[in-house]
């Protein structure tokens, strides 16, 4: 009961702050390629969890990790973030699948995004600083990762 309510509140929160999105076909292909590289495996399967934003990554019938697709608020619209987790819910990679803002493009920089790697969704809160000159997008990115972590915990 408590879980249902929390899940419900998270859904409402995500509606208000982070609309759920979907990937275009090329974006999805790129996402799957990156996941294969991260886990160094091919022929992976993906199952939806009880939260449609969280996908289970399966190899030989064994869950090896998860990934989430989050939409975060930029200044002029949404941008899409992929967060890849290991099976113990540690962030293995964050990347921006789509960014249409006129400014703040540096948040797509892999070196910046790598600061989130190694963070465990269950035990740690993201503490990456906002980028100077890309405050809006980088704060929104952090909040989207926080929400993704919460969703992941309740979906698994």
């Amino acid at each position: 009961m408590k879980t249902s309510l929390i899940y419900f509140i998270l859904t409402i929160t995500s509606l208000l702050s982070f609309a759920q999105g979907s990937l275009t076909q090329p974006q999805e292909k790129k996402c799957k390629n990156i996941i294969e590289k991260v886990f160094n495996k091919t022929g992976l399967q993906y199952n939806t969890t009880q939260d449609k934003d969280i996908q289970r990554i399966v190899s030989n019938n064994k869950t090896i990790g998860y990934y989430s697709l989050m939409n975060a608020k930029g200044k002029i619209g949404w941008f899409k973030i992929i967060i890849i987790y290991s099976s113990d819910l540690t962030i293995k990679k964050v990347y921006i699948a789509e960014y249409n803002e006129t400014r703040g493009g540096e948040i797509t920089n892999p070196k910046y995004l790598s600061k989130y790697e190694g963070l465990n969704a269950k035990t740690q809160k993201p503490k990456v600083d906002a980028i100077s000159g890309a405050t809006i997008s980088s704060n929104s990115l952090k909040k989207a990762i926080e929400l993704s972590n919460k969703k992941l915990i309740f979906a698994t």
Binding site: S4, L5, F8, L15, Q20, K73, W78
Partner: peptide, 24 residues
Amino acid sequence: SILLIALVLMGFTSLAQEGAQNTF
């Protein structure tokens, strides 16, 4: 009752999200 209301609201939420994806 709460679960029923939650499910109905979730239905509205997912419908609203279709709009939220497109309008900002």
